[in-house]
Nucleic acid binder design. Structure first.
Lengths: 231, 231
DNA sequence: CAATTAAATTGATATAAAACAACAAATGGG
DNA sequence: CCCATTTGTTGTTTTATATCAATTTAATTG
């Protein structure tokens, strides 16, 4: 099972896709490369748990992961993380604890790198620091949109938002295969699984999308956008 | 009207209260001091508007401000900002736009400082950068708690959370005078003004708190905590 | 200080969404 | 390949919460 997935053998080839690393010098990238540990996760396996110490940052190199807050009885998925993107929680600069959990949605692999190396590079390379802060800022902005969607739109609008998120940011194609479960869809849109399913059904009946098996196609983007905007 | 409020005449005295500035050298603080502009706002006045350019960061030196997202028909208050604390939105490292609005809740004054000075200091002083990132991280963690409260608790729990926020983080005393309106209370807890008022009334009737005029006292902290935790 | 406007309060009604329950379909391990 | 477990689906009921409407209180301002 090991080594079934093809990976780059160094960060210089792999992480070039992640904009934040573009400001690192080759020798700095090599520093990360030396320190990294690669791990494989089966679908459903937990990568790290909310509340536990956070000794490294995680770079997802294949598959799909979710980061989610374990709340009161249910989870809220903050984001899906696809290759090549990394998970770097806010606890690292606070108390070295995770403030959300992460698990693999699909069979995935990831590189783990000691956070101290990361923090060291931020101190030493201002361009990298700027990129990092920019990245954190983009995350914040995304979260703002998310919290407005969750608190001010009703279910139809929230599902519309999540479908756009999946099509545009995660799977990046229009007919796409939903590898996330209905429960995940519900946890992304802050509603019960039953409600999420029902709205998906409604959208299908109204010809807004087609859904056979787990292949979803947005048929009427304009109408779905409308639903997203009218809440 | 001008100069009625007493302020420090330099950042060295004033901002020492704000932990993020403690890592700045005196000459760096003086750089900020030279560049700052002080402004007074009357209650209700807008400090900046979501979507507009963001040329400076804002340090609230007296009064009380709110930062809020203008959503679909209603606002969501992200935080109240009291002296001496600053407002530094995520747009500054992205597109120099504000992603939320800010306005004065009480008569307030603030210092405005060119963001470029701030960004320059972050590049040049790694300790300051670390403090800044820590600060942004704490903000994120706060927002996580907030979004869980807003999306997974029902109204009683949300109001309880907001009351604790006011008592512990904003007014910092137990009988405290609520200088925010009921609408603000509603916008902090993501519900209608009417619902917020009704729950306040219930809490009063159950002896959990007293509320005469705008003076609120938590009488049964344990029970309020319980309500916060059971959602 | 009266007159006007804005903010707070209360009650009645409508509705969005969860919870519950029962069942179907798919998945995975022995 | 079959049984067991999970995941998905649908209908019904209940409940939390918004909306609407009416009234009271407080705050402004000429």
């Amino acid at each position: 099972m090991i080594n079934k997935i093809q990976h780059s053998t160094n960060c210089g080839d792999c992480n070039c896709k992640t904009s934040i690393f573009k400001s690192l010098h080759p020798f700095e990238l090599e520093l990360i490369n030396q320190a990294r540990v690669q791990v494989n996760y089966k679908a459903g396996e937990i990568i790290f748990k909310q509340g536990t110490p956070s000794p490294h940052f995680v770079c997802v190199t294949s598959g799909l992961a979710k980061i989610y807050i374990e709340g009161y009885g249910k989870n809220l998925i903050l984001a899906l993380v696809k290759p090549v993107d990394y998970i770097f929680g806010p606890g690292i600069y606070v108390d070295n604890r995770h403030y959300y959990s992460a698990s693999a949605v699909e069979d995935s692999s990831a590189c783990l790198v000691d956070v101290n190396i990361f923090k060291k590079l931020i101190r030493e390379n201002p361009d990298f620091a700027d990129e990092f802060i920019k990245r954190v800022s983009l995350q914040s902005i995304f979260n703002f949109d998310q919290v407005i969607s969750l608190t001010q739109k009703q279910m139809h609008g929230r599902i519309a938002d999540v479908i756009f998120y999946l099509a545009e940011k995660i799977y990046c194609q229009n007919p796409f295969v939903m590898t996330i479960s209905r429960q995940d869809l519900a946890d992304l849109s802050g509603m019960s699984k039953e409600s999420a399913i029902r709205i998906l059904k409604e959208f299908r009946e109204e010809g807004i999308l087609s859904l056979q098996g787990n292949t979803l196609e947005i048929l009427n983007i304009k109408q779905l956008r409308q639903i997203s905007e009218t809440g």
